[in-house]
């Protein structure tokens, strides 16, 4: 009995730790982008390293949780849903890391006048991610609270869409820009907007998992 209780407490902690990593990766991403936009290269490099470590810890935790779920045959009825959820959250973490690495590889030249909108877009994506992480925590701890977090995900995704469209319009209406420069900035705006879209997709699935578990 003690052993089983220990396993339960252990896996609960692991899940919480994993969600902490997803939330943390969002915060690192935001800071990394800000450093990039303000040209602080050293700080940006540090954030690249931090997000890589975060992703590594997240992967290890996810594998360990999956192993526990199967070897101890825990929550047999929701095991598939939980694993899918964690995989999706991990893919969000990967997306943060991937986008930050794109900045490092492509070194896009973001026009000064678009910085505000880019920061707004990053902020909307991170808020959507935070709301999603809170929904996931509610799924494991108190299922009745899920809906109060899920609607925030939708709100920030819609905000992100609006900012992204506004930003893309501004990019293409600005004169004296090469098409390749326009397209690169558009792509970055698009990939930042994709983070919020992905968060909303995961939130929709989470809503279904919650309905399946509701009594």
């Amino acid at each position: 009995m003690k052993k089983i209780l220990r396993v339960r407490t252990g896996i609960e902690k692991q899940v919480e730790h994993f969600l902490d990593q997803v939330s943390l990766s969002g915060l690192i991403f935001r800071q990394g982008c800000e450093y990039y936009l303000s040209g602080k290269e050293e700080d940006f490099e540090r954030k690249i390293q931090e997000i890589a470590d975060c992703e590594h810890v997240g992967d290890d935790l996810r594998r360990s949780i999956n192993e526990h779920l199967y070897s101890k045959t825990l929550i047999p009825e929701s095991r598939g849903d939980v694993m899918e959820l964690l995989e999706n959250m991990d893919s969000l973490l990967d997306r943060f890391k991937g986008t930050l690495w794109r900045f490092r590889i492509e070194l896009p030249e973001i026009c000064e006048e678009f910085h505000y909108d880019f920061k707004q877009l990053i902020n909307a994506s991170i808020e959507a991610n935070e709301a999603l992480v809170e929904s996931c925590r509610a799924f494991f701890i108190d299922i009745s609270k899920i809906s109060s977090h899920l609607h925030k995900v939708s709100y920030w995704e819609s905000e992100s869409d609006k900012i992204s469209i506004r930003l893309q319009e501004s990019i293409f209406s600005k004169k004296d820009l090469r098409l390749s420069h326009r397209m690169q900035q558009r792509d970055f705006a698009h990939s930042l907007d994709k983070i919020a879209d992905r968060a909303e997709d995961i939130a929709d699935k989470l809503n279904i998992y919650a309905i399946k578990r509701s009594l």
Binding site: R8, I11, E12, L74, I75, S78, F139, F140, I141, D142, I143, S144, R213
Partner: peptide, 8 residues
């Protein structure tokens, strides 16, 4: 508000 794993 019993948690998922405890409910299990």
């Amino acid at each position: 508000k019993i948690r998922m794993f405890r409910l299990d």
